[in-house]
Each structure stands twice: as C-alpha cells, then as structure tokens.
Design a protein around this nucleic acid. Structure first.
Length: 556
RNA sequence: GCCCUCGUAGUUCAAUGGAUAGAAUAGGAUCCUUCUAAGAUCUAGAUGUUGGUUCGAUUCCAACCGAGGGCACCA
C-alpha cells in the first residue's frame, strides 16, 4: 500500500510541476501514523515542498489532494497540519484479509540470492553459555527472514577447535581427570593466569596440539571434541536450528595462513615485532592486528580469510553475514579492511552484525572463571518455572514436558529478539524473563487461544465466511494487513525486533477483540466473519512466530 | 590517552527528522456460571546537561557528564 500511495503522489507531483513551474521532486515518505486519528497512512511531502515552493504546507497538501482521483483503495484523504492522511477503505482491507494464507508475508525480494549466515559459534571444550543463545536467536531469525524473502540460505556454525583455549582444557584434563570438559577448561585457564609453570606447559601443549605430534594428546583431543559437539547438537535441537555446515578453525587455519602469507608478499600485511605478520590499521583510522603470530601460528584474523574462502567454495554466496558479540566490532572492521585488499570480491559481500552482550546485574560473565549461566541451565530453570505453573492442568506428563520446553525457549528467544540487535541485554533472572505481558509466552498463548476458538467453531459447525461484514472494521483487521511491510523492513535492516514488537501489538489487539466479542455464536450473523478474522490472525502468528524461531503450541 | 557503542517512566524495552514520546513490568481500581485469566479494561509516571542545524529533534551536529566495549601475537 505504501508503494501505491508513493506512486500516485509522484504522478500528482509531475502534474504539479507543469502548473507551478519546475521544482525538484524529493523522496516521498509514506508512514503509518502512531495515532489512529491521523489515518492509516500519512505523508509529510507538502512540508518538504513548502520551502521550495514558498507556499503554506496546507495549501500544497490541498493541491495534491485535489489531484488524487480514482484511488479506489482509499476512502478518505484528509489534510491536517501539513500532513496528508489517507484512510484505507474497509473494502480494501477485507479484500486483503481474504488473501491471507500460509504464505502471507513472503516476497521475492531476494529470489534465488544466496545468503550464508554464520552464528552461535560456541567453542568445543568450553561451555555453551547464554551469549551463544543470543547469537543463535538472532542468527536463526535472520536466516528465516532471508528465506521468507525467497533467498537460498545456508547456516554455518564456526567453531574454534584449535587455539590456546583447547590447550587450557586439555591441560586441565591431564591434571585432573575427574573434571568435565568445560570445568577442565576453567581449571586450565585459572592456572594459566596464576602459575608461570602451568602457563609454559600450556603454551607448549598448544604447539603439540597444533602439530598433532603426540598420539595420546590426539586421542584426548578427539574425545573432547566429539563430546562437545554432541552436547551442542542437543542444544541446537531444542533451539530449532539445523546447521548446514560446521566449520572449524582447524580447517580455516592453514588456508588462512596461506592467504595471509600471500597478502604479506603483496605488501598488504607487514612484519611487526618478533616477526609477527600484522596489518597496520592506523592508516585507516583503525588499529593494528596480528594475523600470524611470531610462532608462525595463524590467529583468528588470518583464519577469517580462510573462513570466507571456504564458505564461498561450499556456496557461492551473494551475501555472507557473520553474527557475533559486539565486543569484536572493532576487530571485524580491521579484518574486513585487510580483506578488502586481499579478497576484495568476498569482502564486499561480507557483513558483520555485532549483537549486544548478555549482562548480569552483578557484572560480566566469564567462562574463564567458571562464573557463567550456561545455556542449558537457563533453559532448564525456566522449564521448571513453567512446569510449576501448569502442574494442575489436565495434560499428560509428556505434553507438559514438551510445552514447558517450548515455552521456556520462547521466553528466552523473545527477550533477545524484542530489542534492537546491537544493544546489551540486562538479564535479571527474577524479573526479565516473565511469562506475561511483553513476552514470548504471551504470543504463544494468544495463538493457542485463537486456535481453540477455531476448534470450537468446527464443533459448532460454523464456517469462516466474508458474506456478512460488520459496518465498522476494527483495528485488528487494519493491523493484520501490515504484516508484509513489517517483515520487509525487518529483513532490510537485519532487525528481527520489528517483527517481535509488531506481533505483540497484533496479539494485544486480538486479545482485546477476544475479550469484547463472542467469536463463535450461532445467533450472530457476523460470527463467520469473526471466525475468518481469527483464522487470518492464526496464519499471521504462525508465520511471525516462525520468523522469530518460536514454536507454536496447540495447547498450553 | 585514542577509537567505537549507548544514556527515554522506579525497572526492562519501543519510536524510518514529524502530529498527544508507545509498551510491558512494579503501584492503585475493576472483570471469570460465557471461545484457555499466561487474558482484558481504567489509572498514575520518562527523552542525562548545554548549545547548534531545521517549519519541526528522542532521532542529525558540537561540547560536557555518565555507562559499556575495544586498542599486537586470545577469540
């Protein structure tokens, strides 16, 4: 609808150019006003033109208004305070609600474009903590947004299976066999800092692991990696993510080193202190980073070159999106600047999204000290809270278990996705994940309620129909047809929270509707229409929640 | 010290340069013999400070104050 209004105004302005003399046509902005009193769509075009035309905005607005004829979808055009407000006709709204089906909200903006997303990225041997849950929630939602735009999407999880953290974990295991891997890591990391002897041992161990020169260590390594991946896989299943590829630093390292060495020959990278190969970012207002350290081991920086190349070999992408915590925003700029010069084609296609950090009221979490809330324990604790809440419901134990898990995941995902992706989340266990109000469970609950209304309509044998339509079309209907525009904006800006906030508003509208109207009622001639509206709401919620990676439930 | 983010109700978050700054929670008052009360309806409460650009600034610019992150061999 926005596009239609834009086009019409554009036409009118071209006509006005003849009448009023030549003027530049600015970009036309059509928005949905915050207040209902200002129509369904609104534009400020006359205010922008006011200065150039030296006329009162209202005067210009009226000129534009008079020239708009034969606009069937609009029932009323109003000029107030320089704005031109458009009211959509009820007929148009109903026509569009009729069209709402399982594909509602999809478009072809990225048809056949190849997009690869890289997210979650936990490290084997270490804990899967709540920061990884954030990355996963955002990455999965973005993946689905791209799929909704018609893109071919591949999901990648990039994991550090080499590097000093592995040496720390293996050292921890060697010195205390009873420890589980994440604890062994914490133990090793602590000793690395506190003991000079341990530090040296771990550094040597790192080289042994990298070179694969010790059979016993190799075996321990394989075992640890396998256990970690199994543990992660279990969590991905709960979260509803299925990765197409797992890529490891063990693979990106050698290739990355080669590319970095080539870059050194091409004088993109240079030699720094101790013989390390570095990139001087200062030339570009950035800082210096090491690509190959003085021991000849490629760092994360060089590995990222290899990663980009490996991804491209697997899937010749048009866009590659990397989702990580925002603590590496600066790092990524440096790496990308270097990449622009050595792999320019790939650099152009690479985008980084730094999400905020999950912070506790007490301070920052650290897996190094073992002070973390693990992803698993968070899910479990929330699940317990849900189970307590539904203990008296007439549901089987099995159903209760499934419901509580899906509700717990939705609470976490929603609390991540409801706010813009860049900013931190203050995670207060007692407060912030609530099951009512502005929350994932609220959305699930609204959906389930609507579903049970549809069930009732079936049992009462009333079918959805648009035969009798009430005189006044409600806010719910108007909001429903905005869904495709919200999805589009979310995808363009890489911000799932537009979908999240929209769904909450929509659900709130539906809940009001539900409270005020009796939907299924044989005496009411509008009942079939209300059922049709409910069906449309169910379709939108189904798609919207899918975009957020949140499961819908038949009962809860 | 330099660079990057960010300061909005008590709290947690919204608001493509637009109209009366929205929600949710916590507080106060209502509504279950009726489609799931994880709900609905009222009520009260906020743009860090000072300037600038603009017809119009929470949004853009500058300074200050405050918070977080990053600045060479970790990721």
């Amino acid at each position: 609808m926005k596009q239609e209004i834009k086009k019409i105004i554009e036409k009118v302005l071209i006509e006005l150019q003849k009448d009023l003399g030549d003027f530049k046509i600015p970009e036309i902005l059509v928005e949905i006003p915050k207040s209902l009193e200002h129509g369904d769509y609104s534009t400020n075009i006359s205010m922008i033109l006011a200065k150039e035309l030296r006329k009162n905005p209202n005067e210009i607005a009226n000129l534009i208004k008079e020239k708009i004829i034969n606009f069937k979808e609009i029932s009323k055009i109003e000029v107030i305070g320089g704005f031109i407000n458009f009211y959509i006709s009820d007929k148009y709204i109903v026509e569009n609600i009729k069209k709402i089906n399982k594909d509602f909200g999809k478009n072809n903006n990225l048809k056949n474009k190849k997009v690869i997303l890289d997210y979650t990225d936990p490290n084997p041997f270490k804990e899967f903590h709540i920061g990884h849950l954030m990355s996963n929630a955002i990455g999965e939602s973005l993946s689905r947004l791209f799929e909704f735009q018609g893109a071919k999407v591949k999901r990648v999880c990039y994991q550090g299976d080499v590097g000093i953290h592995v040496a720390k974990a293996i050292w921890g295991k060697l010195n205390n066999k009873k420890l589980k891997w994440p604890q062994a890591y914490a133990f090793g990391a602590q000793n690395f800092e506190e003991s000079e002897k341990a530090k040296n041992e771990i550094t040597d161990l790192n080289k042994i692991i990298y070179e694969k020169s010790d059979k016993k260590i190799n075996k321990l390594y394989d075992q640890g990696k396998k256990e970690s991946l199994k543990y992660f896989d279990n969590i991905y299943k709960k979260l509803g993510t299925k990765f197409d590829w797992l890529i490891f630093e063990g693979q990106t390292g050698p290739l990355g080193k080669k590319i970095a060495e080539q870059a050194f020959k091409n004088e993109v990278l240079e030699k720094g202190e101790g013989g390390a190969i570095i990139f001087k970012g200062e030339k570009y207002g950035l800082h210096t980073r090491v690509f190959i350290n003085s021991m000849g081991i490629p760092t994360y920086e060089a590995k990222d070159f290899g990663l980009a190349k490996i991804k491209y070999q697997k899937f010749a992408y048009d866009k590659s999106i990397v989702i990580t915590g925002n603590e590496i925003n600066e790092y990524f700029k440096v790496m990308l600047k270097a990449m622009e010069q050595i792999l320019p084609d790939l650099a152009k296609k690479t985008f980084h999204i730094g999400h905020g950090m999950l912070r506790l009221p007490e301070g920052k979490m650290s897996s190094r000290t073992g002070k973390v809330i693990t992803g698993e324990s968070l899910i479990n604790q929330l699940q317990e809270m849900v189970l307590e809440k539904i203990k008296d419901r007439k549901l089987s134990q099995k159903d209760k278990k499934i419901i509580s898990e899906k509700v717990a995941i939705s609470a976490i995902k929603y609390s991540v996705l409801k706010q813009s992706a860049g900013s931190d989340i203050i995670y207060d266990f007692n407060k912030s994940v609530s099951f009512n109000g502005d929350s994932g469970p609220y959305l699930q609950y609204s959906f389930t309620r609507a579903l049970s209304v549809l069930e009732k309509s079936k049992s009462k044998k009333i079918k959805a129909s648009f035969k009798n339509i009430p005189e006044k079309i409600g806010q719910l209907e108007k909001m429903m047809i905005q869904f495709p525009e919200v999805v589009e904006r979310s995808a363009i800006e890489y911000q799932p929270h537009y979908v999240a906030t929209y769904l909450t508003q929509l659900a709130s509208c539906f809940n009001s509707f539900y409270a005020q109207e009796q939907i299924v009622n044989k005496e009411d001639k509008f009942s079939p229409y209300k059922i049709a509206v409910t069906q449309a709401f169910v379709n939108i919620m189904q798609n919207g929640l899918w975009l957020l990676g949140i499961s819908t439930l038949k009962k809860m």
